[in-house]
Simulated scan of single mutants.
Amino acid sequence: MANGNRLIIPALGGLYGALAPLADLIVRVTVGFLLIPHGSQKLFGLFGGGGLEGTAQFLASTGFTPGLFWAVLIGCTEFFGGLCLVLGLLTRPAAAAVTVFMAVAVFHHWPVWFWPQGGLEMPLLWGLMALSILIRGGGRFSLDAAIGREF
């Protein structure tokens, strides 16, 4: 490798070097694509979601009032924020919104750790991924770069 590190599997050095420029793109697009269905559940009732009404009722029952406000805000953050991350458009503002949303989710799920028991591990993971994207920006392969912003 060009940085002088000794690889554990030297035969893969060429592959690592070839794929390294795509690493940020892979993470950004994957995070975006995985957020979109969650927003679709909340906004449109797709994928077994409750739509705005069901999500608003659920959120109000957990202390997030007014429920409709939070349902729209969270649904839009996931759906449109995810779409922005996929496209690399307004990448840093979208990642910032997801980071803040997930920080709230972490505190809401505190102190339980494991996700199957309603814990914080998944919001923490999502939040740290969004924070990483916020720090790195859209990257070379983004609409932000194509228009000369946030690169």
Rank of each mutant, 00 (worst) to 15 (best):
M1R: 08
N5G: 10
N5L: 15
R6W: 08
L7E: 10
I8K: 14
I9L: 14
I9V: 15
P10Q: 12
P10C: 07
A11E: 14
A11I: 06
G14R: 11
Y16G: 09
A18F: 07
L19W: 04
A20F: 01
A20N: 14
A20Y: 00
P21Y: 02
L22D: 03
A23F: 03
A23K: 06
I26Y: 11
V27G: 10
V29N: 12
V29S: 10
G32L: 13
G32P: 13
F33P: 10
L34N: 08
L34K: 03
L35N: 08
L35W: 03
I36M: 15
I36D: 08
I36W: 06
P37W: 11
G39Y: 08
G39V: 09
S40C: 13
S40F: 04
Q41F: 00
K42D: 09
L43Q: 06
F44M: 12
F44K: 10
F44D: 08
F47Y: 15
F47G: 08
G48Q: 07
G50L: 13
G50P: 12
G51N: 07
L52C: 09
T55S: 12
T55V: 01
A56Q: 03
Q57F: 03
Q57N: 15
L59R: 05
L59P: 06
L59I: 09
A60S: 15
A60W: 06
S61V: 04
T62Q: 15
T62S: 13
G63D: 05
T65G: 11
G67R: 13
F69L: 14
F69P: 06
A71F: 13
A71G: 12
V72I: 15
I74S: 13
I74K: 01
I74H: 01
G75V: 08
G75Y: 05
C76K: 08
C76A: 15
T77Q: 01
T77H: 01
E78N: 10
F79H: 07
F80C: 01
C84P: 04
L85W: 02
L85A: 04
V86K: 09
L90A: 12
R92F: 05
P93K: 12
P93S: 12
A95P: 07
A97W: 02
V98F: 03
T99G: 10
V100Y: 02
M102A: 04
A103C: 01
A105Q: 00
V106Y: 00
V106G: 00
V106K: 00
F107K: 04
F107I: 01
W110K: 01
V112P: 00
W113G: 02
F114P: 00
F114E: 02
W115I: 00
W115M: 02
L120F: 08
L120D: 00
E121A: 01
M122K: 05
M122I: 14
P123Q: 04
L124A: 13
L124E: 05
L124I: 04
L128K: 05
L128H: 05
L128W: 07
L134E: 07
I135E: 11
I135R: 09
R136S: 13
G137A: 03
G137K: 02
G139P: 05
G139E: 04
R140S: 06
R140C: 00
F141W: 14
S142H: 00
S142A: 03
L143A: 06
L143E: 03
D144P: 07
I147S: 05
G148A: 09
E150D: 15
F151G: 15
F151K: 15
